[in-house]
Amino acid sequence: MRKITPILIITIIAFSGFSYAQDSPKAVVEKYLEAVRNNNYDTAYSYISKTDTTIIDWLELIKYVRKITPPKLTEVIDLAHSAVQQEIVDTSIRDTTAFVKTQSIIPDMEETLRVTQDPEGIKFLLQHGGLPVKEKPGECTLVVEDGSWKISKVRGVSSDQAAEIATDFAELILGKDEAKIIREKINEFMRKREGGI
C-alpha cells in the first residue's frame, strides 16, 4: 500500500502537467489572436474564460459592427486586421495563473486614412509595405479552467474603445451622416448588452 500511494501521486502530477503542455498559455494566446485576425469569433470564444465579460463584449461588438456597416468600411476593417503582426515576447506561470506578454505591429489607421480612404489604396499600401504602422505592447492573463488554460483578461481590450474606433472610421470613410446612424446603432447594441437584453 505504501508503494501504491507515491505512484498514484506521481501519475496524477504527470497527467496534470501533460494536459497543460498540450495547450500551453503561449499556444492558447497564439490561437486566440489568429482567430480574431481571421474574424473566426466562435473559435476565439473557445479560448476565453467563463468569468470574462470584457473580451466577450469586445468580440460581440466587432461582430455587430461587421454586420451593420457597408462593405466599404468592413473591407477596411478586414484589411487592418490582416496587416497586424503579433509576437509573444514573454510567458510566466504562477500556479494556475499565466501572463503572456505580446508585442504587436498594427496599422496606424488614423495616419493611413489621412493618405487614402479608398480600400484599394489601402490594399496597395499593404502589399507594397507603405502602410503606416505603430507598435503596441499587450498582456494576456490566463487561468486554469476545467483543466485548460483560458484567457481571463486582455490588457487594452475595451468595447467602448472599439465603438469609438469604428465610428471614427465610419466618419472618415462614409461621412458624418452615415457615421451618426452607425454610432446610434452601436450605442443601442451596447445598452442592450449592458442591460442583459
Score class of each variant (00 low, 15 high):
K3C: 00
P25Q: 05
I62P: 01
S19L: 15
T112R: 01
T116H: 04
W58H: 14
Y32I: 00
A162R: 08
I9A: 11
K153D: 11
A170H: 01
V76W: 02
K31Y: 07
R66Y: 14
Y45T: 04
R114T: 12
A80L: 05
K134S: 13
S148P: 05
K63G: 11
S158W: 04
E110W: 03
R193S: 11
V84G: 02
E178G: 03
A21E: 10
K185G: 03
K67A: 11
V84Y: 00
I186L: 05
K176I: 09
V76P: 00
K134D: 07
I9N: 05
V76T: 11
I55V: 15
L61Y: 06
S16K: 08
K3Q: 10
S152K: 13
F15C: 14
V29M: 03
L79I: 14
L113K: 00
I7D: 09
A170E: 01
I186W: 01
R2L: 14
L59Q: 04
V157Y: 13
I197C: 03
G147W: 09
L126R: 12
S158Y: 05
L126N: 11
K31Q: 14
V28K: 03
I62D: 12
F99P: 00
A170P: 04
P119N: 08
K136P: 00
K3L: 10
A170I: 03
E30G: 06
I9D: 06
Y41I: 15
I106D: 02
D90M: 11
P107F: 04
D168E: 13
W58I: 06
D146W: 09
H81Y: 14
E110A: 12
V84F: 05
P119K: 08
D177F: 08
E184Q: 14
V154I: 15
Q127P: 02
G175L: 06
P137V: 10
E184Y: 09
T96G: 10
D146C: 10
I9W: 05
I151V: 12
K192C: 07
V133H: 02
T112L: 02
E75I: 06
E120M: 08
K101P: 04
G147H: 11
K136A: 13
E75G: 10
I122Y: 02
L113Y: 00
I197V: 14
P70W: 09
L79P: 01
P107L: 05
V144H: 02
R191A: 13
L79D: 03
Y64T: 05
P107C: 06
S92A: 11
F99N: 05
V65S: 06
D160I: 11
R66K: 15
I181F: 05
G138D: 07
I151R: 02
G195K: 13
I7L: 15
G195D: 10
T11F: 15
E164Y: 12
I62M: 13
K150V: 07
